[in-house]
């Protein structure tokens, strides 16, 4: 293939990857930014979203669209409920201590994986796309649903942006992020903000899982890779910065496609992880984050 179409494909693929990545990472970024904790089970919330999408689609076998719509509704609610229980039962009890939270959420990660393995099984199960068409370009074809995913992700991101910058909850979140104690002094119900943010983060991950499952398959080990990628995005983008997350998702999404072409893809992944480490060491607030105390 010539370089032109080739770059076009890499761009297309990079854009889709970027939107999905931004959506997956957004939840992690919010939790990280507002609560200053790392939720290692974030990838499992993503996986649960995908598995629930499979459950919904097998409940309504006649219509892929109806199953998908149901999943978009059910999965975030179920996963949100699990997240609420996690916040109440675990995070609050360890007083949101960053290191305890990491250990606890690693524990949660294994428990969720085991539950899914026991009740859902080891198979990678496909879920039919709600709308399917192949876009054919003169040089190659491309999945139409992937473009739909990009659009839907963009919509969710936009809604999140609106939520964060225009609503009272968003105001509370930003206040908490900037200075938790000050926010509390000004009457922001910080504990409730924490719970809400944690639940919202999980719901976003679940939604990303539902969107992506027709492209991938639902499998009980599918959470680890998005978790690592989300980490990369969140760190490069800067903690809790929606803009940074989106920009970083694009940087990673597009460069991953390009680097994998010119170098070995395994090498590309090595470079990406080292880049994250470098960013953390050299500019801990992220490449696009603002310096906040």
């Amino acid at each position: 293939m010539d370089l032109g179409p080739f770059l076009f494909l890499a761009f297309l693929e990079g854009t889709v990857t970027a939107f999905v990545l931004a959506l997956t990472a957004l939840g992690l970024s919010l939790v990280f930014g507002v609560m200053r904790i790392v939720n290692v089970a974030h990838g499992e919330f993503f996986m649960l979203g995908a598995v629930l999408a499979w459950v919904c689609s097998s409940l309504i076998e006649s219509s892929a669209l109806a199953g998908f719509a149901l999943a978009l509704f059910v999965a975030p609610i179920v996963v949100g409920a699990i997240a609420l229980a996690t916040d109440w039962g675990i995070l609050k009890r360890v007083k949101y201590n960053p290191e305890s939270t990491i250990v606890a959420t690693i524990g949660l990660l294994y428990i969720i994986q085991q539950l899914v393995l026991s009740f859902y099984g080891p198979e990678a199960r496909p879920v039919a796309a709600p709308i399917y068409f192949r876009v054919s370009f003169p040089w190659f074809g491309y999945s139409g649903y992937k473009l739909v995913v990009a659009v839907l992700s963009a919509a969710v991101l936009l809604a999140s942006w609106y939520g964060i910058s225009r609503t009272r909850l968003g105001l509370y979140m930003r206040a908490t992020q900037q200075d938790m104690e000050m926010a509390q002094a000004f009457g922001v119900p910080v504990r409730r903000v924490y719970a809400t943010v944690f639940v919202l983060g999980a719901m976003l991950a679940a939604m990303a899982g539902v969107l992506i499952v027709p492209v991938q398959q639902a499998h009980y080990l599918m959470g680890l890779d998005p978790l690592l990628l989300s980490f990369i995005v969140v760190i490069i983008g800067g903690l809790g910065s929606l803009k940074g997350t989106v920009v970083a998702a694009f940087v990673i999404g597009i460069s991953d496609g390009m680097i994998s072409v010119f170098f070995s893809p395994t090498l590309a992944k090595i470079l990406a992880t080292l880049l994250v480490a470098a960013v953390l060491v050299i500019r801990p607030t992220g490449l696009f984050g603002e310096d906040t105390a």
Partner: peptide, 23 residues
């Protein structure tokens, strides 16, 4: 780095090391 940043740096290096063995 320190605290959570240190933790993530270690994790990233660990992952890079694993991938290097595969590479």
């Amino acid at each position: 780095t320190s605290g959570v940043s240190f933790l993530i740096v270690t994790m990233m290096f660990g992952q890079a090391c694993y991938l290097t063995i595969l590479y």
